[in-house]
Amino acid sequence: MRKLWLSFLIPLALLAAWWGITAAGIVKTYQLASPVQVARELVSLAQDGTLAADVGASIVRVVAGFAIGCGLACLIGIVVGLSRTAERIIDPTLQAIRAVPSLAWVPLILLWLGIGEDAKITLVAIGAFFPVYVNFVAGIHGVDRKLIEVADVFGLSRIERAWRIVLPAASPGLLVGMRVGFTQAWLFLVAAELLASTKGLGYLLMQGEQITRPDEILVAILLLALCGKLTESGMRAIENRSLRWTDTLRTST
């Protein structure tokens, strides 16, 4: 944790530059609000309760969508990772779907599922699914065959082998996928909320644009940055804790 202040150098410099630019009147206030205005807007949103409602709605959608997408990715990933046949059947289709630019799904899902919570959670799940799936399958494929042989000489069944060797040995890949998947979940959430919602951080963004309130837009952006950073740090902490056994540059002390 030493030299933590190094990580704050750039944010502080940006804040100072932002304040300088708005204070000097270089940019018009209806395009860029000053830090003070943004802070004031943040406080007023927090006081009238809209902030908690928006942040809460977004978090619920992200967590639910991530749980579904990640769960499905784990199930399909382990089947594809362990069986050549399953890989031949499933993987090409999934890779083709993955090649579709993510936001192209938005109109279709909205058309199918309407503008309710289902549609947003589905989109978030799609977003979370692919990073988890891809990294998990790569992790399984990367498991050392020599370890599998140890299971074989002990006569382990396929299921025991998957559970006791393949899963833990592939966990680094899975955890990286989950971290990237969570970031992607936020991205899809904003896309869904921008297009159709009545609350959430994406809604706050869109509303700010429509009523020309740069302070509101910036509040939403800052909150998204904060949420994204917090989930990323949380996932990284889980990763570091559970991967202490790996012998890599990152875990070396």
């Binding site: 042989e149 140890v150 000489v153």
Partner: peptide
């Protein structure tokens, strides 16, 4: 029982866990 050229220990298990594997 077989001992390979390399230890082939399971990195996520401690020594006791590895010995107990079978």
């Amino acid at each position: 029982g077989i001992v390979f050229q390399e230890p082939r220990l399971f990195g996520w298990l401690d020594v006791r866990g590895n010995v107990a594997f079978g």
